[in-house]
Amino acid sequence: MARLSHGLLGALNLVTLLLSLPMLCAGVYFRMRAATECERALQVPVIALGCALLLLSLVGLAGACGRRPAAAPFLWAYVVAVFLLVVAVFAFTVFAFEVTNRGAGSAVSGRGYREYRLGDYSGWLQARIAEPETWRRVESCLAEARVCGQLDGAVGQGAMDFYRQHLSPVQSGCCKPPTRCGFRYVNATFWETPRSGMSPEVAGVGGDCRAWSNDQQVLCFECDACKAGMLATVKKKWKAVWVVNVALLAVLVLLYTLGCCALRSNAGSRYYNGGGA
Rank of each mutant, 00 (worst) to 15 (best):
G149H: 04
L142K: 01
L151D: 01
P132D: 10
D161L: 01
R128A: 15
R146N: 14
D152C: 13
V147C: 04
P132W: 02
S140K: 09
E139Q: 08
Q126E: 09
G156P: 06
L142I: 09
S140E: 14
A143Y: 00
P132E: 05
F162L: 03
C148L: 08
D152W: 07
A127Y: 02
R136I: 00
V147R: 01
L142A: 08
D161P: 00
Q157I: 05
A154Y: 05
Q150P: 01
A159I: 04
D161Y: 02
Q150H: 12
A127N: 10
C148N: 07
S140T: 12
L125Y: 01
E139V: 09
S140G: 15
V155S: 13
C148G: 03
E133D: 15
R137A: 11
M160T: 13
E139D: 11
A130V: 03
Y163L: 06
Q150G: 14
A145T: 07
Q157G: 12
R128S: 12
A127S: 13
Q157M: 08
A127D: 15
R146Y: 13
E131G: 09
A143V: 09
E144S: 12
V147H: 00
G153M: 02
Q157P: 03
A127M: 10
L142M: 10
Y163A: 12
V147Y: 02
A130I: 07
E131Y: 04
C148R: 00
A127P: 02
G156H: 05
R164W: 01
V147S: 00
R164H: 10
V155I: 15
A145W: 06
W135D: 10
G156L: 08
D161E: 15
P132F: 05
C141P: 05
Q126L: 05
E139T: 12
W135S: 07
Y163V: 03
T134R: 14
A159R: 09
F162A: 06
V138S: 08
R137W: 01
V155K: 15
Q150L: 13
R164A: 13
W135V: 09
A127T: 06
D152K: 14
Q150T: 12
A159F: 06
D161W: 01
V138I: 15
S140M: 10
Q165I: 06
E139Y: 00
Q165H: 04
A130N: 15
R146L: 14
D152P: 11
P132M: 09
W135Y: 09
L151C: 09
P132R: 00
G156R: 10
E144N: 10
Q150I: 07
L125I: 02
M160K: 14
E144I: 04
G158C: 04
G158A: 13
Q126K: 09
R137S: 11
R164E: 12
V147G: 03
V155C: 11
I129A: 07
Y163K: 11
A127W: 07
R164D: 13
S140H: 08
E139L: 06
A154W: 07
T134C: 14
D152F: 12
V138N: 03
P132G: 04
Q126S: 03
A130E: 12
L125H: 02
V155E: 14
G156T: 06
A143R: 11
A143F: 00
Q150A: 13
Q165Y: 02
Y163D: 03
G149C: 11
C148H: 02
I129R: 03
D152Y: 11
G153P: 01
A159N: 07
V138K: 03
V155N: 12
L125R: 02
R136S: 13
S140W: 00
I129C: 06
C141A: 15
M160V: 08
T134W: 14
V147D: 07
